[in-house]
Design a protein around this nucleic acid. Sequence first.
DNA 1: ATGAATAGTTCACTTATTGAACTATATTAT
DNA 2: ATAATATAGTTCAATAAGTGAACTATTCAT
Lengths: 146, 146
Amino acid sequence: MELKELVERYQTAINQVYRRVNGILKDKMHSDITTDQFSTLHFIFKHSKCTSTDIAHEFGVGKSAVTAQINRLDEKGLIVRERDENDRRVVYLSVTDKGTDFVNYTEKAIFEILGSYLKSFEKEEIYTFIHSLEKLAKIMNEDLGE
Amino acid sequence: MELKELVERYQTAINQVYRRVNGILKDKMHSDITTDQFSTLHFIFKHSKCTSTDIAHEFGVGKSAVTAQINRLDEKGLIVRERDENDRRVVYLSVTDKGTDFVNYTEKAIFEILGSYLKSFEKEEIYTFIHSLEKLAKIMNEDLGE
DNA sequence: ATGAATAGTTCACTTATTGAACTATATTAT
DNA sequence: ATAATATAGTTCAATAAGTGAACTATTCAT
């Protein structure tokens, strides 16, 4: 099989999955938060006291884009900014109680739906798939540092 | 292993891969076309004489979003619109010679870079991975029709 | 102490998307 | 045959997301 064919199949499939997952989340979150905003909120939830720079690096976007994201989450009362007392340039981000509730509630909804899709897969197949995906992500991230 | 953990790992990894691939394409396409625009152009390239509705369905967006995309590609001279003579509501889309050259050139660049990432994978691992990805895409697309 | 680096914000601009309203054409039902 | 309905695509106003340059406010280095 040719590389060209494999890459095209990969592109088509990953695009479909990515957009479909986005669509499902949009439907089920029943709220006026976007999936991009939820990704950022979730990252802050998992990495409490992280910074804008961390987020910019994680998602591969500029710092000004992160400022805009953070502003939207801040306006909704889902996160708080907190300046470092020692290095006053730094702003730490963390989720509020409201943000925590929101993440927990939304995750539950997401797991139910995605879980139902995964029923057609053998456990072994899921592990192998995720392992390959993580390996690919790792290789690509490493390469970035060069 | 818990579903929750698997889904979170999936989300993190696929997000990273998706954004990283986008970043690579952006770097290497050395042109003022975006990756979204290239996706649309590529779809038209592969499905000559397709319609806006086809594209809206493929990418899961509204028709007005497609009109905007098509306009951008049209302005760049990469595609042409052509009305159906029998059903004058319908507009067929196809790539111009310039568009064809552009797709071929860009694909070559993409294959070189993505190919280099895939060197760390066994052939078998790649096939299995793409097979699972396509299976997931298929399940999700089927579910959409309900 | 001065100059460079770092963290974050602001600003102007572009792209992508949505959804409602609209035009034009085709289909269907009475 | 015609009136109602459906379909294909566009336009428009709004929002979200991104870029990159210029900026503020710090901290670090020599």
